[in-house]
Amino acid sequence: MIWYWRVFCGITQREFLRFIQQRSRFLSALVRPLLWLIVFAAGFRAVLGVSIMPPYGTYITYQVYIAPGLVAMILLFNAMQSALSMVYDREMGSMKLLLTSPAPRSFLLISKLVATALVALPQVYGFLLIALWVEVDPPLIGYLAVLPACLLVALMLGAIGLLISSFIKQLENFAGVMNFVIFPMFFLSSALYPLWKMQEAGPLLYTICAYNPFTYGVELIRFSLYGELSLSNLVIVTGLTLVFTLLATLSFDPQRGQKPKR
């Protein structure tokens, strides 16, 4: 058991060291959601009113509404960044080093997923700290309750990223992921607008949002941030995390994208 713990610690430590070395990554991880919160949400708060809805007990500003969605956005970009680095490592050959470890391949991949999820947490708390400035001030218990929720959502998104990276042959193709995965996933969810608003917009949009895993992640974070447990979202996110992790580990092929030398 201690042997596996050492391997896990090594992988996690490396992810944190890389994160610390890449300071611009931390800055961009914070700037992106803060722009949405401070610029976009401030501009739209007069247009987009949010009526009383759980978990909020009263009328809320638009900034308060989109804060959980922006937390999930941080987790989404972090997961896709990790998936990108997997494709990069595979193309550059560094992945081979990981795979010559005596630890089982599935253990190595899951350790990498957990390590990536852990790296996202300081980014989330950095964002929530700055969000206090625009009166996004959930109860203290919410800061604690959101931790396991964020970890679980980060794992689910990381597994989706790993699954996507398994099907990408070359690094250049990853730009397509931005257009066809990240943006639809974010916009077609409850991150920016409540689902009932989507229902008003049209049944198709609502159905897409309702089947988007990201929606359940956002809602799990939203309820947790206000100290409430949303059992249905928890069950769905846990189930999706298990399914995507299983699919990602089964479809992982370290040789993908590597052509024989001539």
Binding site: Y4, R6, V7, I11, Q13
Partner: peptide
């Protein structure tokens, strides 16, 4: 150290 950890040292 990373490599040593991957070997469970």
């Amino acid at each position: 150290l990373y490599h040593a950890a991957l070997q469970g040292m």
